[in-house]
Design a protein around this nucleic acid. Structure first.
Lengths: 322, 322
DNA sequence: TTGTAAGCGTTATCAC
DNA sequence: GTGATAACGCTTACAA
């Protein structure tokens, strides 16, 4: 690495004390004369402060640790885009924890030891251990995903989503519905909240609920099993990907139900027929997360905040009448 | 932030000099006695060194800047996964530059001023300006994507890919082929290299080439225009996503050609029919990148390295005889 | 094996 | 308005 020019070098060249240079750099009072002199020199030597020294001195930095459960998901990258959108002088240190609680814990501890100035956690679920570690730390922290009491959080209004889908499905007047959900202990918002309104709308309509998984092949297999045993004219999946799995099974079984999914993904517009889907703007969620984070960071004594993001149902071909 | 315990605190508690503690921490020679004492204390007080102080002192750190052109791509996140896979004590500082050369340049400069210990750049194309900045810096740098002379690089063997697809398409004996390519000045490897072997295989077969874009809707429109004018029985797209666009256009035009794509994406297995596709393992590419990076970092005088990753053709339903 | 002391590049305090 | 000087937490000669 090339020897970087330091504040000392600048001071020497300008023939002033380094404290003067420091003041100059940080907007303290300096005479017009020295200011001019330094303007030139700093530009000429392309001086940039050493961030380590700054951080060491100031006992803080502008790095925010961002924990992502996975990166191969449009929802996640949209949230990250939302963070970037509003960011000016923070640095996001993104750690992918591959949906693994142990890695998540390790990541949090590593970030803490790296003295990040805060944590933004895009998570599906917090384990008890992680909850404890987070609460013990004094770091400003904001989470996304689950409605965790005791944490500053941005959540999706999954209850409302279920209600809206419930209202809509009544209009479709299905005869037999397949619900493909996920284990609520793994993801309560998705596995439970999203289906409250749906189930209540299905009050007098026959339906079958199958708990499956976010993974495409598992969802596909679950759907196949259910659809081979029984005929459905409407399939509702906890996520778009799950619905795609069901579509593939239906295809091989020569069945042709209607479909409703959740989430905003590649899928809704790339599969045929295009998917009717309840969509949340994760981009907006990302922006909300960052706004909330700043609020929390800049205000020590703020009570726990809870921000709720609404979504909307986008009707596409997969629920057209046939 | 809670006052973190420092090496000084540990030294005081243990009643030794802080240099002894430092030696203990860094595997220097310490007596069994002090070692035992320190073992306990360090554990008890949960001491972790202040990374700023370390970095400041050592004039380097274990952070590697990683520049990604986009994050909403399976190829990119697979490469990042490859990096993570092999990583032990480095920290990746991932910056998404949204396929924007200005952002990319800014990111590089910011990373340099943050004193990262190296750069891994997953890029589609380097601008002249970026090339200059990178070459001026002494940072160990590894790039991926294009076969840039003068840079340590990991590239995909797109020439070979085109040859293999060329060989295969001859067996399909198509009557009229649609090639959906991209602008080679924007991505030479994809826009040019991938199609060399294909075009030479199409030597005596009629074909039409249309230059389109990686974006789904643009590809869809381009394909529509071409397919509305003329009938094709085989469509080859520069990427899977482009092929998906073509599929949708074919669907609305009630045409039913065969398809070949490139890349390893969600698409190949979620669209119907599943896509025959030439696939590269971006996960392996990520691992190769990191291996190469370490080699470059740990060996000052290494000549420029060039690593080539091969891929393979996976035949699925979209080219089945009909 | 251990301790002393200097120094990494900053910022902040306090005389001048 | 300016300049010594100390301090942030750590590593490393060098001396003991």
């Amino acid at each position: 690495m090339n020897k970087k020019v330091t504040i000392n070098d600048i001071a020497l060249i300008a023939n002033v004390a380094k404290s003067t240079v420091s003041r100059y750099l940080n907007g303290g009072s300096v005479s017009a004369h020295t200011r001019n002199k330094l303007d030139g020199i700093v530009k000429k030597y392309n001086y940039t402060p050493n961030t380590f020294a700054q951080s060491l001195k100031q006992q803080t930095n502008h790095t925010i640790g961002v924990i992502v459960p996975r990166l191969d998901s449009i929802a996640q990258s949209d949230m990250l885009r939302g963070l970037d959108e509003l960011n000016i002088d923070d640095t996001f240190l993104i750690i992918n924890v591959y949906q693994d609680a142990a890695r998540e814990l390790a990541a949090i501890e590593k970030l803490q030891s790296q003295n990040v100035s805060g944590l933004i956690i895009l998570t599906a679920n917090l384990t008890e251990e992680i909850r404890t570690v987070l609460q013990a730390s004094k770091l400003p922290t904001v989470i996304q995903g689950q409605d965790e009491q005791g944490f500053n959080r941005v959540i999706m209004n999954d209850i409302q989503a279920g209600n809206i889908v419930g209202d809509y499905l009544k209009k479709l007047a299905p005869k037999n519905v397949l619900l493909l959900t996920v284990d609520p202990t793994l993801d309560y918002a998705v596995g439970h909240d999203r289906f409250v309104g749906i189930k209540s709308a299905l009050n007098d309509i026959p339906y079958k609920e199958v708990i499956t998984d976010f993974k495409l092949d598992i969802a596909k297999a679950s759907a196949y099993q259910a659809m081979a045993a029984e005929n459905f004219d409407l399939v509702i999946g906890a996520s778009d990907r799950i619905v795609v799995g069901a579509m593939q099974s239906a295809f091989s079984l020569h069945q042709n139900p209607r479909y409703i999914g959740f989430g905003q993904s590649y899928f809704s517009e790339t599969v045929t027929p295009n998917l009717t889907s309840f969509e949340f703007s994760f981009f907006e969620a990302g922006k909300a997360l960052y706004r909330l984070f700043r609020k929390v960071r800049d205000n020590e004594s703020l009570p726990i905040q809870r921000v709720v993001i609404a979504g909307e149902l986008t009707i596409r071909d997969s629920t057209s009448m046939r």
